[in-house]
Design a protein around this nucleic acid. Structure first.
Lengths: 155, 155
DNA sequence: AGTGAAAGTTGTTCCCT
DNA sequence: AGGGAACAACTTTCACT
């Protein structure tokens, strides 16, 4: 059922590296019962085949002063291709926007924004979001608490 | 303005490692104009101080068959502490739920769910989400396209 | 805080099965 | 596809500034 061009060993490798991205190849090899060279070859295959798109350090937002997560629903004034393109290009340049999705249904876009606090979000809203091209309405929803946050996909 | 107990060199280290989590300490040291040992000590300080919470490999969802992202707004039947606690414990055990936030406003929770396709989401909805304790209403919004997705905070 | 050197581990390649 | 060996590169610690 779960295939997609990778075997169970590759799946284990992905599952492990999704949680411990800096695990040494030697340790990884031991965990999946392979020699270091065989394991290394598989990891390279997963990287070159686009299964693994990169490795990142996860930074605690609170420790760098980003205590506030806000989801923003945006509707644009029109659905013309150029309207959407212009919006998408501009939104990708706002560093406070961690995610942006084009949505089905009423709202056109859903954004995940990280701000220092509510006041900082007001600044981001006024200075960046409201000025994105084609924006008609903005509706912001504040997160009171992050219950779960993971980058690990079920594999 | 940007401080929080770390100096500009630490900020650069975080910014770099947020994008290249597997960069060697030797290369990182060169980029921030430090010796390997000084750089290593700073990285350890950032890890032990909770600034860096971990390192992960990012996996391409499409390559492992997760083509569909859905946001789900959930309201519970009541706001009793036990109701929220039970819900939060249960939702954290559903691997298809990558994020869960307690929200201000009308909907109680916002979930980010990854599914293989719409049919698979129907299965997740029926078999997992609808059965979470205390759930009153579920409202699902499908992402048509991910415009931007990053784990890197602005620092 | 930073440096340089030393020692032990790793990543990576190559050859063989 | 996997294993083993070899070498270069790297991580990590320590003594010193």
């Amino acid at each position: 059922m779960t295939d997609f061009g990778i075997d169970p060993t590759d799946q284990r490798i992905l599952t492990i590296l999704q949680k411990e991205g800096r695990l040494s190849n030697a340790d990884l090899a031991e965990r999946v019962n392979l020699s270091a060279s065989a394991c290394h070859r598989r990891v390279q295959h997963l990287e070159r085949g686009g299964y693994i798109t990169g490795y990142v350090a996860l930074v605690n937002p609170r420790k760098v002063g980003r205590k506030t997560t806000v989801y923003v629903e945006i509707t644009l004034n029109g659905q013309a291709d150029e309207t959407l393109d212009a919006f998408e290009k501009a939104v990708a340049r706002v560093p406070d926007v961690l995610e942006c999705h084009l949505m089905a249904g009423t709202a056109d876009y859903l954004l995940k924004v990280v701000a220092e606090d509510a006041e900082d979000f007001a600044r981001i809203h006024r200075r960046h979001l409201a000025k994105l091209p084609g924006v008609q309405t903005l509706q912001s929803s504040f997160s009171l608490k992050t219950v779960r946050q993971t980058t690990a996909l079920p594999i």
